[in-house]
Amino acid sequence: MSEKKALWTKDFVILALSNFMLFVAFQMLLPTLPVYVTDMGGDQLAVGLVISLFTVSALLVRPFAGKALDTIGRKPVLLLGLAIFLLAVAGYYWMVSVALVLAIRFLHGIGWGIVTTTYGTIVSDIIPRERSGEGMGYFGMFSNLAMGFGPLLGLWVSQNWGYGWLFAISAGLTALAMILSRLVKFKPIVPAKKQQGSVLSGLLEKAALFPSLLNLLIGIIYGGIVSFITLFGIEVGIVNIGLFFLFNAIALMAVRPLAGKLFDRKGPVWILLPGGVILGGGLLMLSYSTTEWQMILAAILFGIGVGGVQPSLQAWTIKRVDPTRRGAATGTFFSAFDLGIGGGAMILGAIAKMTSFAVMYRYSLVALGLYLLIYLIYLARQGKKTAMSESISS
């Protein structure tokens, strides 16, 4: 048996730390920017635009970022994205009106779309192919750690030191991410062949479309969680709704490496089906939660499901494409997730308005049902044995 290739290389660790710094900088602003806009005199519409404008700009830029990664190269695209992100974060404090804050929020989304697409592509270059699931799991674990730490840090800084320090620290962390990223030795790439046709050709990777479709359906469910969980807590009388994010992040961190190793050894079907069922159990549990302990259990189940499914889908996506198209594939994958979050927030928000947030979460199980049905149809058409061994075949 050949010796297993190293995963925890210097470049992998540096890139993971750089990604962690960026995610903390981003997560610090998630719970604080809506309050900042409100303090400036913004209404509920303005607060909603803080989320939607960011998502839209990230969604629009990802396919172009992916194509640039495959034609221009990884390093210049990453540095450009980090520079835009840094400019936006530092600029929030100097915006004198809600309209200007929203404008720079759009720019912020462009930077975020570029850097997250680029990080996902670069790490897929670094991780050994036979350990792609495990590597993606560990890499995502750093993002999950930031999800648990960043919002708490952002709230503490804004409440105790003010918004000036909030934006300064977030900008400082982004600058650290940029410095660390320059220490990574980028592997030379073979430029992708130019696609004939318009400038829009080649933006999406066809081989990535199927796992991206499944990711879109997961994004719809996730959009309902991140957009409405606080309002759900108010509706059912759960005061400390922040516990959901804490235990969800813990579950995500715990399951990612284990799910990644199982993906590498057994294939995607061993993660995507049971992970989807567990995710559905957490969602159903959440919809009936009226106490903190019920919500915590729901958060753990949801975290186990998402923590297994999404990195496995990402690793599966990378394995399906040619190395020269990894940028386009990563852009396609994350664009689908963004589209799911944005579309899910709108559709589920309309359902909640007509019913309740608890009922809304039960309706979101329809997206999960489609996810399982589509994947089962795929297994039936491809043959279970082929699908199970696809991720470990060369």
Rank of each mutant, 00 (worst) to 15 (best):
I221N: 08
A358H: 10
Y222F: 03
N240R: 11
F139D: 11
L176N: 05
T355H: 06
L79W: 10
I377Y: 07
W112Q: 12
G140F: 04
L176V: 14
A380I: 02
Q382R: 15
G162W: 02
L213K: 14
M21R: 03
L45R: 00
L200Y: 12
V56A: 13
A254H: 07
T9Y: 06
L80F: 14
P323R: 02
Y371Q: 06
S394C: 08
F337E: 09
F64Q: 06
Y375A: 12
W94G: 09
A387E: 05
F149T: 14
L339Y: 07
F228V: 09
L79M: 15
I127K: 02
P211F: 07
V96M: 13
I220C: 12
I127V: 15
K10P: 07
T230K: 10
A146M: 12
A207T: 00
L203K: 02
Y375K: 13
K4T: 14
T324C: 05
E134L: 13
K67E: 07
L17F: 15
L339I: 01
Y93A: 14
G343Y: 05
S393M: 14
I341P: 06
T38S: 15
S198G: 15
G305L: 08
L370C: 09
G219F: 03
F54P: 01
M40G: 08
A146P: 04
V115Q: 05
A299R: 03
P191L: 08
I341Y: 06
A208N: 06
L60H: 12
G331D: 09
L100N: 09
G164I: 00
S181M: 07
A345M: 11
S335D: 10
A299G: 03
L217D: 01
G233W: 06
P268G: 06
A299Y: 09
Y222R: 08
M178H: 03
K385N: 12
Y36T: 03
S289F: 06
S18K: 05
L231R: 15
G164S: 05
T330E: 13
G282T: 09
S97C: 02
E235W: 10
V199F: 14
F244C: 02
P76A: 02
L209H: 01
R74E: 05
F357C: 13
A352K: 03
Q382K: 15
A208W: 08
W270A: 14
L286V: 03
L301Q: 09
M285D: 07
G223E: 04
L231S: 14
L258M: 06
N144K: 00
L231G: 09
A177N: 07
G162K: 08
L59A: 05
T117I: 05
L246W: 10
P268M: 00
A175R: 01
L258S: 11
I318D: 00
A168D: 11
L273W: 05
R131H: 08
H108Y: 05
G73C: 03
L60R: 07
Y119N: 15
Q159D: 11
I271K: 05
L209S: 07
F263P: 00
G172T: 03
A46P: 00
I220H: 01
L376M: 13
G81M: 02
G327Q: 08
R129F: 12
L82D: 04
G150P: 02
G280F: 03
F334T: 12
F186H: 15
G197S: 03
S124P: 02
L286M: 13
I122S: 00
S170M: 03
A68I: 11
I300L: 12
K10H: 11
